[in-house]
Computed example of a mutant assay.
Amino acid sequence: MENKSTMVVFNGDLDKAIASFIIATGSAAMGNQVTMFFTFWGLNILRKNESVPVKKTFLEGMFGLMMPRGPENLGISKMNMGGLGSKMMKYIMRKKNIATLQELMETAKELDVKIIACAMSMDVLGITEAELIDGIEYAGVATYLAEADQSRLNLFI
C-alpha cells in the first residue's frame, strides 16, 4: 500500500461536494497522492458555470437543462428549500471564514489532487469535455480501480 487516498464522488449535492474536497485537500496536505473519480451526478460539480454551445441530442440537452451547472449552482442534500438552504450554508461559511467549494477545488489543484471525470457517465449524461472545468482527466472505471487498488483509503461520497 502506498500513501494514496482515493474516492468516488457520485453525489452532486453542495454539502457532499464540500466534504469531498475537504477530505481530499486534507489528505493531500498530509502528503498523500489523492485521486477523485467523479461519476454520474458528481460530474455536475465539475461543470462550468456558464453554458457552452455543444451539439447534443434531445435527451442529452434535457439532462443538461435539468442538472445544476457547476459548483456555484449546487443544492444541498437536506433542507434545500428551493435553493434557500444552499444560500444560507454559503452565507454561514463566509461568516465563519470557511473556504468555499470553488476555493477548495482550486486548493485541490494546487495540491496536485488528481481529478478524473468518468468517461462512461459523461457519455450517458451527454456531458462533453468542453462543458467541464480545465485541468482534469477523463478515464473509465479501470483507471480509478487501479488507483484504488494501491490506496490505503478509499471513500464513496
Rank of each mutant, 00 (worst) to 15 (best):
Ile115His: 04
Thr25Asp: 08
Phe58Ser: 08
Val141Thr: 12
Met30Ala: 15
Ile45His: 01
Asn73His: 15
Ser5Gln: 08
Pro53His: 08
Gly140Trp: 05
Glu110Val: 04
Phe10Lys: 12
Ala108Met: 01
Asn32Tyr: 13
Ala142Cys: 03
Asn3Glu: 14
Phe21Ile: 07
Glu131Ser: 07
Asn73Ala: 12
Leu132Glu: 06
Met93Gln: 08
Asp13Asn: 13
Arg47Tyr: 03
Met67Pro: 00
Gln33Ser: 15
Phe37Pro: 01
Asp134Trp: 06
Val113Tyr: 09
Glu2Tyr: 04
Thr107Ser: 10
Lys96Phe: 09
Phe21Cys: 05
Ala28Cys: 07
Gly135Met: 03
Leu125Lys: 03
Ile115Asp: 03
Phe156Asn: 15
Glu103Tyr: 12
Val8Trp: 01
Ile76Cys: 08
Asn44Gly: 00
Glu131Gly: 11
Glu60Trp: 10
Phe10Val: 01
Gly42Val: 02
Ala146Gly: 04
Lys109Glu: 10
Gly31Trp: 13
Leu65Ile: 05
Lys55Thr: 11
Ile133Thr: 11
Leu132Lys: 08
Gly61Phe: 02
Pro53Met: 05
Trp41Thr: 13
Phe40His: 10
Ser5Trp: 09
Glu129Leu: 01
Leu104Trp: 12
Leu84Phe: 05
Asp149Gln: 12
Val113His: 05
Ile18Leu: 10
Ile116Ala: 03
Ala130Glu: 15
Met7Cys: 02
Ala119Glu: 15
Leu132Phe: 07
Asp13Lys: 07
Gly64Arg: 00
Met36Arg: 01
Tyr144Leu: 12
Asn44Leu: 00
Lys95Thr: 11
Gly135Tyr: 06
Ser151Ala: 15
Leu43Asp: 06
Asp15Glu: 10
Phe63Pro: 00
Met66His: 04
Asp112Glu: 13
Arg94Gln: 12
Asn97Tyr: 07
Gln102Thr: 14
Ala148Phe: 05
Cys118Ala: 03
Lys109Phe: 11
Leu43Cys: 02
Thr107Asn: 09
Ala148Lys: 14
Phe156Asp: 09
Thr143Tyr: 12
Gln102Glu: 13
Ile98Lys: 12
Met79Trp: 10
Met1Lys: 10
Leu46His: 10
Lys56His: 09
Asn73Leu: 09
Gly82Met: 02
Asn3Cys: 01
Ala19Glu: 06
Ile115Cys: 12
Gly75Trp: 00
Gly26Val: 09
Met122Arg: 00
Asn73Val: 05
Ile22Met: 11
Thr39Gly: 00
Met7Phe: 07
Gly82Cys: 04
Thr57Leu: 02
Ile18His: 02
Met36Thr: 10
Pro53Ala: 10
Gly126Thr: 04
Tyr144Trp: 13
Asn3Gly: 04
Lys78Ser: 08
Leu101Gly: 05
Thr57Ile: 01
Gly31Glu: 09
Met81Asn: 11
